[in-house]
């Protein structure tokens, strides 16, 4: 048997992590051996404390003991730099941890193309410039308003008498129909109420 990291022959003493065999030296240099040593300590104690048992069962970012057996990257390294050291890191740091990190993206499901596949991406040809120019040069009013009622009411209302909910709703709606002047007025009103409190 050979060590997966340094290639040296492995004797009787070795550590197996995620299917990789590591010699004593590599396990020590990656600080993986500490976790196993502490686990044997647990069995030698008659009444080990509960927190010792929890070691390694639930990974969190503050845990620096678990390192990638191939490159030595720890979870803390990843948390601090946002960078993984090698492909093996994706296996070493279990799914639940990666999911936490991938929460940033709102999804952890890959939906893109496969390697080497060609995907014909077609975008609508959008003459944005001419549309915008024509509109801004000729139209003084914003687009048609689907929620005409609420926006019309807010436009003509004394904002001091309008509820917070309606202001918020109106602000969202105004932003959606791109009536930014009204959106800003409503936001200022909400802001001033917040400051008043």
């Amino acid at each position: 048997m050979k060590c997966s990291r340094c290639g040296a022959q492995i004797g009787n003493s070795f550590v197996k992590v995620n299917g990789m065999l590591l010699c004593d030296n590599c396990a020590r240099s990656l600080k993986i051996d500490e976790v196993f040593r502490r686990q044997t300590d647990i069995f030698n104690q008659a009444f080990p404390s509960l927190d010792v048992f929890s070691l390694g069962s639930e990974l969190d970012f503050s845990n620096t003991k678990i390192r990638c057996p191939r490159c030595g990257t720890s979870l803390r390294d990843i948390e601090q730099g946002g960078q993984l050291g090698c492909i093996e890191c994706y296996n070493t740091f279990n799914e639940s941890i990666l999911k936490n990190i991938l929460k940033l993206q709102g999804s952890s499901e890959y939906m893109g193309r496969k390697p080497g596949d060609r995907v014909d991406v077609e975008l609508e040809s959008e003459p944005v410039k001419t549309e915008v120019k024509a509109e801004t040069k000729t139209k003084a009013e914003p687009e048609a308003k689907p929620d005409k009622d609420i926006l019309e009411r807010l436009k003509n209302a004394d904002l001091g008498t309008v509820s917070d909910e309606m202001l918020e709703q109106g602000m969202k709606r105004a932003a959606e129909v791109e009536d930014y002047a009204l959106a800003v007025r409503l936001r200022d009103e909400l802001k001033s109420r917040g400051e008043g409190n």
């Binding site: 991938l102 890959y110 609508e124």
Partner: peptide
Amino acid sequence: VATLGITEQDLLSRAQKVQ
């Protein structure tokens, strides 16, 4: 922001809309 949960086509279409 998204590189997961989205196809290349959707990503580019969204880009065009935001733009």
